[in-house]
Design a binder for these strands. Structure first.
Lengths: 261, 261
DNA sequence: CGTTAAGTTGAAGGCGCTCAACCGACGTGG
DNA sequence: CCACGTCGGTTGAGCGCCTTCAACTTAACG
């Protein structure tokens, strides 16, 4: 039960030896429960601790000058809340629990020591941060380029794959502890409109979402609606092959608009 | 002239010894010119080389299934095109020159060796990637949460600061080799609307932008229009103090909308 | 049973998009 | 040297996606 979500996740990228697994288990020793909506780090803080999310969901967010909250990442069990933020002097965003859950606090020094002595772990962790960044890029594409309907569908696809990667999808069903307002804040949409888009998705028989349970009824349909291509998640050795991604190869003759001298 | 932009930039974070500077100069040995619009890496490629941008501008972008291009990052002189992407097996985005310029190709192995042997450089590089990610987050906030007017203003603020950080702003003027269409692709707006927003900014006496020259007329006004807070750029030892950022402290009683169990 | 959070639905309005025409600068070639 | 094509920018008119505002329903929980 310890940090299974993390080892399972890392192991999908780079095979971890038993020693490595033990090391990971070791730093995951002191698991502590956290309450729903607990702020783990606030913007402006000096980050000295890395959080490993064992159980529950969390979000990374920023607050706009007018008070609006923009969610910039959704953290699932097994995710690290920025491995190396401590290089920076000041958090430029906050992290908060969405649900109650369990975390491990890893002090900066421990983190550095582990990374120093276990190249395999270091590489695996490195990989996770790059994937985080890739996800961030895709989110930008999502809100920058897709309409509301596809945008919602895309987020659902992503979460479905990521949850599957840590073994938290069973039979097309998964927990999705976000309110429609939360979804809106992640997608740059109003809660009302998120609601309408979800209705549409339900109407087309693609998904249902009630009582924070998401159920995928027609994955291929959802993928098509979203224009989803899981390549950016950089998955390897998928636990279970999901859908039929024959990589919906994009129009390779796509026009690339131009620029000046 | 070599890699001054890079050393100048890195030095702002962590003081680099003469040795470090020499090392950096060494890997910057083979500078090669690149043509305007040259694709440096394409989506799907297996990244084996890191590009250091010496001169000119480049963009990181993704293509949507419908052919639309979303710019996910703007790379200025001194920027590295992802130091460690080679951990990933496959590029999830493309990088292309916007202008003609000069680059250095750094093979993966060289990169690893330098980082291995020069902790100061490693940390400085590490820092740059974290800043890149912070910028990405702010972009997401920008397109997700701001209206078109503030969005344009915000991007201009950011580029102004970043260009200033590498010494490429003189007297409130800088080169900005993006067409209005390019700006639109970075901001999730249409070219026409970017045009109108720029007109408004000009109308209010904040900036002028003609012939790819940006001129800031009223920095404080622009900052206010954008709701800009440079904290996310994690600047240290600014080359020149810019404006009067007394950190427009956000409404600390801002409401944080809630979520479920 | 009363209260609070979340979801649902309707109506109206606006921000940004679409379509389209036109201008100006620049480069090329006849 | 002018004609023309291209590229980027500018402006106008109309439309539609999404927002805003508001009322109401449903679920959870004391």
């Amino acid at each position: 039960m310890t940090s299974n979500a993390l080892t399972r996740k890392l192991d999908r990228w780079e095979h971890l030896s038993d020693d490595d697994q033990v090391t990971l288990a070791a730093i995951s020793g002191r698991i502590e429960p956290v309450a729903r909506h607990k702020q783990l780090i606030e913007e402006g803080d000096d980050p000295r601790i890395v959080f490993l999310l064992i159980e529950g969901w969390a979000i990374r967010y920023k607050i706009l000058p007018d008070g609006k909250r923009q969610i910039v990442a959704i953290l699932l069990p097994g995710d690290l809340c920025d491995i190396h933020v401590f290089i920076l002097d000041r958090m430029d965003h906050g992290i908060a629990m969405l649900t109650a859950g369990k975390i491990v606090r890893i002090p900066k020094d421990t983190m550095l020591a582990v990374v120093d002595q276990n190249p395999a772990i270091a590489r695996a962790l490195w990989w996770t941060t790059l994937v985080d960044e890739a996800v961030l890029r895709e989110w930008l594409v999502n809100v920058g380029g897709r309409n509301a309907y596809a945008r919602v569908a895309h987020l659902l696809c992503e979460l479905y794959v990521r949850m599957g990667n840590v073994g938290l999808v069973t039979d097309g069903r998964m927990s999705l502890p976000l309110t429609q307002a939360d979804l809106g804040q992640a997608l740059g949409l109003t809660p009302v409109h998120v609601n309408r888009m979800l209705s549409q998705l339900r109407g087309k028989g693609l998904v249902t979402f009630r009582a924070f349970q998401l159920r995928i009824l027609d994955l291929d349909g959802l993928i098509a609606a979203a224009g989803f291509d899981p390549g950016y998640l950089h998955g390897k050795r998928p636990e279970r092959t999901i859908g039929s991604w024959s990589r919906p190869r994009r129009n390779s003759t796509a026009k690339l608009p131009e620029s000046p001298a």
